[in-house]
């Protein structure tokens, strides 16, 4: 039972971090209808900037600069690449983001090399103990930060003018433009927000129990793909649900690996994708996604 609770908390915590990444992914998809394969490099950009600076200016300022940095990289990708192809095929744009991802990842791989960069976060390897259950503080911090950010985001999405403009543009670009919504700004802000969320996710992917930021940190971003797809690519609530499902599945599959050894090793890495396939078989648009409607 103790193991189960520990795994559940750990899974929810990782899941909430995946949800942050998936949320950015969904925001970009909603605002621009582009599947952003460069999301991993946004995450790495934020993490790298924060890790490099934290030794010089302290953890919190470095984190702030990292978030701003990732938002800037996101905005630049939109401005320099996505905007140039506006009105083009969305599938072409998705492939363009693969190109962006390769360029950025190569550069960050070169910058990071074989180093493992630590962020100098205040939590360290401290743990909290409730009865027999032991949880690292970083996991609790991740859960709290993700819950806070996601709540703030969803409230902004529902109640601010920015949110109304975003939802209007996502639903019908032409009608939104006719209402005076500047599609360029909507798209730019979506990319910036996605970058900022990815930077926060980068923080919690690199703190304890992970040793630090390394070249392979970006692989974690790929876990957000099944999260976004399980939830439905165009649903913010779906990103949240998908992230948690992937996080918990992964934690459980890894934690109970011994009992599941007949399935072979490394089940934790595969399980999210298995869940994704099962969900897609039952609901092709994801749990909360809009089913494709064809007007006749």
């Amino acid at each position: 039972m103790t193991t189960f609770v520990e795994l559940l908390i750990g899974g929810l915590s990782t899941g909430s971090v995946y949800a942050l990444i998936a949320l950015g992914f969904v925001v970009i998809f909603k605002a621009t209808e582009v599947v952003n394969f460069a999301h991993a490099s946004l995450l790495l950009a934020g993490g790298y900037v924060a890790a490099r600076l934290s030794g010089h200016i302290g953890f919190w300022p470095a984190l702030a600069v990292g978030i701003a940095g990732a938002a800037t990289v996101g905005a630049l990708v939109e401005f320099l690449v996505i905007r140039r192809y506006r009105g083009g095929e969305h599938s072409v744009l998705a492939i363009a983001t693969i190109g962006v991802d390769i360029v950025l990842l190569t550069e960050f791989t070169r910058l990071i090399g074989t180093d493992v960069l630590t962020l100098g976060d205040p939590w360290g390897d401290a743990v909290l103990t409730f009865g027999s259950v032991t949880v690292p503080q970083t996991r609790i911090a991740a859960l709290a930060a993700a819950a806070l950010l996601i709540t703030a985001f969803l409230l902004a999405f529902r109640y601010t003018s920015w949110g109304v403009a975003m939802r209007a543009a996502a639903e019908n670009r032409e009608a939104a433009a006719l209402m005076g919504v500047r599609l360029g700004r909507v798209s730019l802000s979506a990319w910036a927000v996605a970058g900022a969320l990815a930077a926060v996710a980068a923080l919690f992917l690199t703190v304890f129990p992970t040793p630090g930021l390394e070249r392979s940190t970006s692989f974690a971003a790929f876990k957000a793909f099944p999260a976004a797809i399980i939830g439905g690519l165009d649903s913010t609530a779906g990103a949240l649900a998908g992230g948690l499902i992937v996080g918990v599945t992964e934690a459980m599959a890894t934690g109970y690996q011994a009992e599941l050894s007949f399935l072979g090793r490394g089940l934790g890495d595969v399980a999210p994708y298995l869940v994704m396939l099962l969900v897609l078989l039952a609901r092709p648009a994801g749990l909360f996604g809009t089913r494709e409607l064809t007007r006749v």
Binding site: S161, A165, M179
Partner: peptide, 11 residues
């Protein structure tokens, strides 16, 4: 919200 969207451009 539809009506709110209509007012976005007037600002």
């Amino acid at each position: 919200d539809n009506l709110r969207a209509g007012a976005l451009g007037a600002r």
